[in-house]
């Protein structure tokens, strides 16, 4: 099925400058795989060399962090939105 992935501004240069991309997937993992298949330049910005999500990349299914759901295996449905947000932190 087709679901939406929201792309944050720092990743848009690697995603054809698009803010929303439709992908075909049954799970969150498939959604991310389809996303990088469509936009290969995104891969190294989302995943480390071992294929895991980079530590500062958060992936949400609607309002839930997939780390607290079933991670990559979390099923998706037509009305769902996957959102990618890099973390924001720092300090003196």
């Amino acid at each position: 099925m087709s679901i939406k992935v929201l792309i944050p501004t720092p990743l848009r240069p690697y995603a054809g400058k698009q803010s929303i991309i439709e992908v075909n997937a049954q799970t969150v993992g498939e959604a991310l795989s389809d996303l990088v298949a469509r936009h290969p330049d995104l891969r190294k910005h989302l995943f480390s060399e071992d294929g895991k999500l980079r530590s500062f990349v958060n992936v949400y299914l609607n309002d839930e962090d997939i780390r607290y759901l079933n991670k990559d295996a979390t099923p998706v449905k037509e009305t769902d939105t996957v959102t990618i947000v890099p973390s924001v932190a720092g300090g003196r």
């Binding site: 958060n58 949400y60 962090d65 939105t81 959102t83 947000v85 973390s87 924001v88 720092g90």
Partner: peptide
């Protein structure tokens, strides 16, 4: 001396 914004807040604000 540190700050961190909850990703769930970022998701909502971005949306």
């Amino acid at each position: 001396n540190r700050y961190h914004i909850s990703p769930s807040e970022l998701v909502r604000i971005q949306r």
